[in-house]
């Protein structure tokens, strides 16, 4: 993994920790809502807004809904920040 990707993952990790209020949280590629108890449809939107804010991107409706796991989040963030 190159430095940019690492950087994104670190920042995403921080977003997760802040959103769910859990300092010990560590994200991994296949992490989904099943792995975090508080991650329901409502918190999903909170998370997305936080991600948008952190990375300065705007996601469309389909993307917001389809961000089901961390791996997809990383890919989407990469796609948007590369532009």
């Amino acid at each position: 993994m190159d430095r940019a990707e690492n950087d994104i993952k670190k920042r995403l990790n921080r977003v997760f920790r802040e959103t769910f209020g859990d300092e010990k949280l560590e994200v991994f590629e296949t992490m989904t809502a099943v792995d975090i108890d508080a991650w329901d449809s409502l918190m999903h939107v909170v998370l997305v807004v936080a991600i948008e804010k952190e990375f300065g991107i705007t996601l469309n409706a389909a993307e917001v809904g389809k961000l089901e796991n961390v791996g997809m989040m990383l890919t989407t963030i990469k796609k948007h920040t590369r532009k």
Binding site: S41, L42, H44, V45, V48, A61, A62, V64, G65
Partner: peptide
Amino acid sequence: FYVFNPIVK
């Protein structure tokens, strides 16, 4: 996708 998420967002 098209109602709930946008409203909450």
